[in-house]
Amino acid sequence: MDFNFSAHQHFPLSDRSFLNIVRRDIGKVAETAGFTEVEIGRVNLVVTEMATNLLKHAGAKGGELLVKPMQEEDGQTSGLEIICLDNGPGMSDPQRMMEDGVSTYGSMGQGLGAIKRQSDFFDIYSKRELGTVLLSRIYRKGKAPKSAARAAHRFQMGVVMVPKPGEKVSGDGYCLRLSQEGAYVLILDGLGHGENAHEASNQGIKVFLQQPKESPSTMLREIHAQIKKTRGAVGAIAHWNAESGQLFFCGVGNISGRLFQPGVTKNLLSYNGTLGMAVPNTIHDHQHNWSGQTMLVLHSDGLKTRWDFTKYPELTRHDPTMVAAVLYKDNTRTLDDTLVIVVRATA
């Protein structure tokens, strides 16, 4: 079972005059995804409340909305994911702000409470001096997520992928494969950005999907051999199996990876080189323990490398997409495509 995912569309919002344009464009995304008129109304309310709060609180520091269609296991669009990144002062008591009327001055609805009610899934992370991130997922009727496959492998995965500002496509890419042998995730960063980088990562994903499920190093070597006509990419594959309790990792180039376990943080090392251009004659998998309370973070060089979870109390308890979104908000370079993948063991 394979999953190939799309990037988030990026909607910066620094001025109230852009609100109607943003709401219209996100409404078009929902319409294209097959939402009904009533469902689009839910999306519009969530976007309006998010944007109103963002414009009110972020001020000169600014903020943005990230939006992407979500896919079912059969590839059909199931719903919409909306993330609000607010660089304002943050909240000392976000749960109190969920109450209607507390934070809604100047808004059309009932603030954070309205966003939660209109969402099929809602998460919030806010701390003083750290800003606020809101995560909303709205599903089409009868399209609730089918999580049985991932539950069987005992993991959750969240992703934020955003093209470089001004680009329509991302040169970064990722893909998830599930099987009886475990789960595999591929992360790629095509050299540069734009269409040529997108082509390189897309071609690598196609090769990954067509291969037998073997060791990460073997699969990376095949990707290297098959994308030589592109501009090349850096990339990594992680393979974990909850039954054996092992993680196998192999990377080539400057993909960053960190593995978190109680009391232990490990940097995952990659080989020097570029897939499609030059890789070492010998590359091997690196083996680590994978069990409950393990979290894996992989990201492209669009994200700064000196982030630190200790800055974000209790963040790792939130949805993995929330974790990725907070890291993106505070650490994206904005000079390149950015991809952050967070995988958490659930047992």
Rank of each mutant, 00 (worst) to 15 (best):
A197E: 00
M277E: 14
I283S: 02
T104E: 03
E222R: 13
R306H: 13
V326M: 05
G41L: 04
R154A: 14
M219K: 07
L65K: 00
A347V: 13
R128M: 04
E214A: 09
Q95K: 14
G142W: 08
C175R: 06
H224D: 11
G111D: 01
M277I: 13
Q118K: 14
Y328K: 13
Y125L: 12
T36F: 04
L80W: 04
V342L: 06
T132N: 03
D330N: 13
P165F: 10
T218P: 00
R128I: 02
L335P: 05
K164Y: 05
E39F: 07
L13F: 07
A278K: 14
N281T: 12
R128T: 06
Q203Y: 11
Y328D: 14
L339H: 02
L54A: 00
R23N: 03
E195D: 12
N20M: 11
S215H: 09
T332D: 02
T52S: 12
F11D: 02
C250Y: 00
F11N: 02
F260P: 05
A149N: 08
A149L: 13
C175Q: 11
S291Y: 05
E37R: 14
V67W: 01
Y312E: 09
G106H: 10
D189A: 10
D25T: 08
D120M: 07
Q261R: 11
P69W: 03
V342I: 12
K329A: 12
M50N: 08
L112T: 05
M98E: 14
R96G: 08
E81A: 12
R344G: 07
Q118W: 09
N331S: 13
M277H: 13
A33S: 15
W240M: 07
G251S: 07
S215L: 09
Q293Y: 13
R16C: 07
K304T: 15
S103L: 09
T310I: 06
H153F: 00
S147P: 04
D189T: 15
A58T: 10
V67N: 00
V323R: 01
V43H: 02
S119M: 08
M322P: 07
S170K: 06
L191V: 12
Q287W: 02
R117C: 04
Y125R: 13
F5W: 08
H10F: 10
E73I: 12
M1R: 14
L296M: 09
N44P: 02
M91E: 03
L178N: 04
G131N: 10
Y105L: 15
F249A: 07
F155K: 03
L186H: 04
L209Y: 05
R24I: 04
R306L: 14
V343H: 01
D100L: 10
G62W: 07
G292Y: 12
V340W: 07
I237M: 06
V297A: 00
A51Q: 01
H239L: 11
T36W: 00
Q118H: 15
V252A: 02
A183W: 03
S6T: 12
T305P: 09
H239K: 11
T294F: 06
Y139W: 13
S217G: 05
T305E: 15
F3T: 09
D15N: 15
L45I: 09
